[in-house]
Simulated scan of single mutants.
Amino acid sequence: MISTSLDWVILFFIQMKVGILGNALLVGFYTFTLSTGRNFRPTDQILNQLALANCLALFSKGIPQEMAAFGLDYFLSGAVCKLVFYLHRVSRGASLSTTCLLGAFQAAQLCSGSSWWQRELKIWFLRCLGPCCSCCWVLSLLTNIHIPVLVNGPKNDKNASWETKSKYWCSKTTLDQVSSSLIASMILLVDYILLGLMVWASGSMVLVLHRHKQRVQHLHSQSLSRRPSHEARATCTILILVSSFVLFHALSSMLTLHVALSRIPAQWLLNASVFVALCFPTLSPWVLLARDPRVSKLCLAYWPRSFFP
């Protein structure tokens, strides 16, 4: 059996239910704003795609791991192995690129300069927001197209070494060193570019917010301090998302590297690697729901009148 630890069973069970519920609420909320146009914000398009990527990550990685925690061996067929691993990698890439797009969009909107290129950048972002969201998925689909080719079905050999097996007992094709290096370099290059853009956008937002705070304190004007309150709140929310994404991504990468370098990794290490990788898809929707004032207003507007005195 893969694992029969009650602690991990409970942890994965809670994580899955909390994550799926939060992302389902988030998708429903943003679908409502996009379809009705009520209190619509441009970032709703990006956040809706992020919630969809989170749902895909939880279903493609969380459910198989939850089944494995219950002690089910060899429950994935060859085709399902290919699909599960491919969807997980696609969801990871889509989450990374969508979070990067969210930070870049907010940084462009906060840009207060009056130069021509700054105005054109804002207009371009607003016009191309939908196609940019689609490009995030296309980029993730293309960069992970090799996964279905490399992943195979489970091998019923419990004594096989770790190099011939993968998580959930799906096997993988061993490539030569040159091919493996090329694929790893391509994936790392895309990840580092997106993470670099994410850090740059976050730094730009922090700098703009700091300058605005100094300006407001100097002017002591109520009329000037009210306008940016929504933008400042939205920017802080995005900074929380970006920071948590980078933190969980770094922890997951270190655990995954440790697993890859271990000939026979401990089961707790495998479980911890999956658990940390699913922390961002689980927690991010609740951060967005808690910090969006439209959610509480919507709940009050549609709350049954009988509950009020």
Rank of each mutant, 00 (worst) to 15 (best):
M1I: 11
S3W: 09
S3E: 13
T4R: 15
V9E: 14
F12I: 11
F13H: 11
Q15F: 09
V27P: 14
L34C: 14
F40P: 10
P42H: 15
Q45V: 15
I46T: 14
L47S: 06
L50T: 07
L52N: 15
C55D: 13
L56T: 15
L58A: 09
K61H: 06
P64W: 11
P64C: 10
P64V: 11
M67Q: 08
A69Q: 13
F70C: 06
G71A: 09
G71S: 08
L72I: 13
Y74F: 12
K82H: 03
F85T: 00
L87N: 04
H88N: 13
R92C: 06
A94E: 05
T98M: 05
T99K: 00
T99C: 08
C100W: 03
Q106T: 12
A107S: 08
G113D: 13
G113Q: 06
Q118S: 10
L121T: 14
L126A: 12
C128K: 14
P131K: 02
P131N: 07
L139S: 03
S140E: 03
T143E: 04
N144I: 01
H146D: 02
L150P: 02
N156I: 02
T164L: 10
T164S: 06
S166R: 02
S166L: 06
T173F: 09
T174Y: 00
L175V: 00
D176I: 00
D176P: 01
S181W: 00
L188Q: 07
D191C: 11
Y192N: 09
Y192D: 09
L194M: 12
L197Y: 10
M198L: 13
M198S: 14
V199T: 13
A201L: 04
M205N: 00
L207K: 12
H210I: 03
K213V: 03
R215W: 02
V216I: 06
Q217M: 03
H218M: 05
S221H: 01
P228C: 06
A232E: 06
A234L: 11
I238E: 01
L239W: 00
I240R: 06
I240P: 01
V242H: 01
S243L: 07
F245D: 03
F245Y: 13
M254F: 13
L255V: 05
T256E: 06
L257Y: 09
A260L: 12
S262W: 07
R263T: 12
I264S: 11
A266Q: 11
Q267G: 06
S273P: 07
F275Y: 13
L278D: 09
L283A: 12
L288T: 03
L289M: 05
R291C: 03
R294Q: 08
L298P: 01
C299S: 07
L300C: 05
Y302T: 10
P304C: 01
P304K: 02
F307Q: 11
F307D: 02
